[in-house]
Amino acid sequence: MSWDGFPDKVVQILEKSLFWQSRRQEILAGNLANLDTPRYRRKELDFRKVLTDQLRGVPEIRLAATHADHLPGNRVPAGLVRDAGEGGDLDREMVHLAENQLAYQASVQMLIRKLDQVRTALEGDRR
């Protein structure tokens, strides 16, 4: 979605962070579901790195298209989820989970505030 109408990039950043936080939640859910799977190696998404990469405009890794008619594949850019190379651990995953949930709620809260600001600007102080 284009957010060009906004003077700053806050809404855009918040949208990206919500997307990546819910993606991270999915990965954590996968790790926790596979706690007792033999030889399963936990996956990781470094949220901070992903977001700074996106903000700096580091090019995303995508499927190579060898023909102009090829579909671009999944919209989710690849190369950001990495294999941590170790088994899952209940306590650590729960900590990550709580952290991620709080961060997500913070992002949502900030987005709500931001949209409130815009609304106030549009409607003026009607009270």
């Binding site: 939640q25 729960m94 709580a98 949930q101 997500y104 949502v108 987005l111 709500i112």
Partner: peptide, 28 residues
């Protein structure tokens, strides 16, 4: 161990639900 793992999955489910509900508050 199995019941702990079950609990952990329930916790994830709850967290995801809380997140989804929170997201519904956007623009309210």
């Amino acid at each position: 161990m199995a019941s702990r793992a079950f609990d952990a999955n329930v916790a994830v489910l709850r967290a995801s639900k809380a997140m989804a509900l929170k997201a519904l508050e956007i623009g309210r």
